[in-house]
């Protein structure tokens, strides 16, 4: 179900940099943000175009550098990338951004509203919520990476085999994918969680399996396109084995749209993982994933709304950033 969002590209809105900066960006943040991105040395999109026109050796790499320059000049994109980078860092080193212990209770400080000392306030046991949120990143982001790993490996394998060999193999594999698409992915995830039990890893596996079909479809379509291109024929004609053609020529040239889908599906996977742990299928207390934190705060919504809403906002910002990144990349691909 959610996978199909990936196939619905948004209408093109042109390359006007002001237009893509429609995110929550203040104009003052623009110079600082652009300066922080190493690839942009003040060069605008005009320079990027010029670079594209020069026929330098190593076309793929030159293209990459050119697109990085174009992207660097979009403030919304840069802010989104920086936020995601921040979230990734917190996932692997949560201690860098907080000095509070996520499990230290302080009955005197229960349900304190957000302030300088406690950025997100405290929860019903007086634990620092910001710290719990950052330590929750560790679990949720790792679960997301596991889910994406499963989806990319299985999806790429299925898609490449299906697209490259075609015929009966293709027919059988794609009918299987069709069936998986007929079961809404959240329900598929629920079945897998029922069977595997609760915890971060089962949830990650469940979500990962749910997004495999989308990856398989996209990869297959791309492989089918690349397969017919002259250079593949030339490589085959030149005597390269099919395995070499597959690994050296087809695979490197078909992963572009798959990468964009991976970014978009990261957002979808985060929502799915947070939803499953919100429903109570995630890690057991006192460890808290993002979803568990938000769910636990529900009981104090009347007196202390921030306990639920601030972590929720953090999740929303993460997904929003990921969607913005994938959208900008999609526009660039066209």
């Amino acid at each position: 179900m959610t996978v199909s969002v990936a196939h619905i590209a948004s209408p093109a809105t042109g390359t006007d940099p002001a237009a893509t900066g429609a995110g929550p960006v203040t104009s003052g943040a623009e110079p600082a943000a652009t300066g922080a991105e190493p690839v942009t040395s003040g060069a605008g999109s005009a320079a990027g175009e010029a670079l594209l026109d020069e026929s330098q050796p190593g076309g793929r790499r030159a293209n990459l550098i050119a697109s990085l320059r174009t992207l660097g000049s979009r403030p919304g994109f840069v802010v989104a990338v920086l936020f995601i980078a921040f979230v990734m860092v917190t996932a692997f080193a949560p201690g860098l951004f907080t000095s509070h212990d996520p499990y230290a209770t302080a009955p005197a400080d229960r349900l304190v509203s957000p302030s300088g000392g406690h950025l997100f306030g405290t929860d019903e046991l007086g634990r620092d919520l910001w710290s719990r949120m950052l330590h929750g990143s560790a679990l949720t982001i790792k679960a997301t990476l596991i889910a994406l790993g499963i989806a990319i490996v299985a999806g790429l394998a299925l898609g490449v085999i299906s697209g490259f060999f075609g015929g009966l193999v293709d027919a059988v594999l794609m009918r299987g994918v069709d069936v998986l698409l007929a079961i809404p992915s959240l329900l598929m995830a629920l079945s897998i969680v029922t069977a595997l039990g609760f915890g971060t890893v089962p949830v990650a596996v469940a979500v990962g399996v749910g997004i495999v079909p989308g990856f398989a479809r996209t990869t297959r379509a791309e492989v089918l396109r690349v397969k017919t291109l002259p250079y593949v024929e030339a490589a085959r004609g030149g005597g390269a084995s099919w395995l070499r053609v597959l690994l050296r020529h087809v695979l490197p040239n078909s992963w572009g749209p798959v990468a964009v889908l991976a970014v978009l599906d990261t957002g979808i996977a985060i929502i799915a993982i947070a939803s499953l742990s919100f429903l109570g299928f995630g890690a057991a207390p006192p460890t808290a994933e993002w979803g568990t934190l938000i769910s636990a705060g529900r009981n104090y919504l009347v007196t202390a709304p921030w306990v639920s809403l601030l972590p929720g906002l953090f999740v929303a910002m993460t997904v929003l950033s990921l969607n913005h990144i994938s959208k900008t990349l999609q526009e660039l691909e066209r």
Partner: peptide, 25 residues
């Protein structure tokens, strides 16, 4: 027009439990 075309991808980015809690609040 830009605002309206950007609105859907914005709306689809929010987790449903977050929207629900926000509405309740």
């Amino acid at each position: 027009r830009l605002f309206l075309t950007r609105l859907p991808s914005f709306g689809a980015s929010f987790p449903q439990f977050f929207i629900a809690l926000l509405l309740i609040q």
